[in-house]
């Protein structure tokens, strides 16, 4: 049940999808992987929208060069752990929700524990090897993964529903070379907002999800495009029955 303050806080959303819909958001637990540029936008909008529990994980500390895009953190946070400033910002935006901010690295050893109790995974990482770990964890747990990535003016997003849609590995069979990427905060804003919209729709059961489609944002030419994707019957992540269903989810994992 929503309390009176929540009814007022979410009044414009309740007009959109009713108290039932708002309660569905309140009952949802989300895992936000990263508190950088995408993680900032994703977690802020999820907190404001009233997702009931947000677990956000990042191992880094805030640097001055982060502040052009990582709107969870301010100038006074430079040198502090991102998880700490994220917690304060998100709880300040919405004290009605539970924020579980963790200083930690997302890797094969930690991910299973970090995902305990989470219903959705928000990809706000900055590298593909960790994204492949999130992909496999989503497949193994049969929970959705909302992918987003950016570089400069460009961004991409897709929604992965295990067992139904192409997975991240079907779309990107191999990781692109690692490189320091240019980043514009507003590109994070576009892509992170798409990810949150997808998560809201998923929880509500509304609309048409961005499954089996890769959305492409070209900010330089102000152009939104998409390409179709299909499940790859030879995908080593989602079409290898043994690997997905085994209890040892990290068996034979290759992250690169």
């Amino acid at each position: 049940m929503l309390n009176q303050a929540e009814r007022e806080r979410y009044a414009r959303q309740i007009r959109l999808f009713g108290e039932d819909g708002q309660e569905k958001l309140k009952k949802s637990s989300v895992f936000v992987a990263g508190a950088g540029g995408l993680g900032s936008v994703v977690s802020i909008y999820m907190a404001a929208a009233g997702f009931g529990r947000i677990r956000i994980v990042d191992c880094d500390s805030v640097e001055l060069s982060n502040l052009n895009r990582q709107v969870l953190h301010g100038s006074d946070d430079v040198g502090r752990r991102k998880a700490r400033s994220a917690e304060e910002m998100l709880q300040g935006i919405n004290p009605e929700i539970d924020v579980d901010a963790i200083v930690g690295t997302i890797d094969e050893d930690s991910l299973d524990r970090l995902l305990q109790g989470c219903d959705l995974i928000m990809d706000a990482m900055d590298n593909f090897p960790t994204r492949y770990l999130l992909n496999r964890a989503a497949l193994q747990r049969k929970i959705p993964l909302f992918h987003g990535a950016i570089c400069g003016f460009q961004g991409q997003a897709t929604t992965i529903i295990p067992g139904k849609s192409a997975c991240l590995r079907c779309i990107f069979p191999r990781a692109p070379p690692a490189a320091t990427f240019p980043a514009l905060g507003s590109t994070c804003g576009v892509i992170g907002s798409v990810q949150v919209t997808e998560a809201v729709k998923y929880v509500l059961g509304s609309g048409e999800l961005l499954t089996d489609r890769l959305m492409l944002w070209d900010g330089l030419n102000s152009c939104m495009d998409e390409v179709a994707c299909v499940r790859d019957s030879s995908c080593r992540d989602c079409c290898n029955k043994y690997n997905v269903e085994t209890n040892n989810m990290w068996n034979n994992v290759e992250t690169e």
Partner: peptide
Amino acid sequence: IVAKNGKIVSEEEQASYADELKIVRIVHGG
């Protein structure tokens, strides 16, 4: 990644004159 006539395909696939290819640079930042 490459989309042939709007659909992502393996680079092992072939293309001919009538096909439209879209070459998409993968972005990986966050």
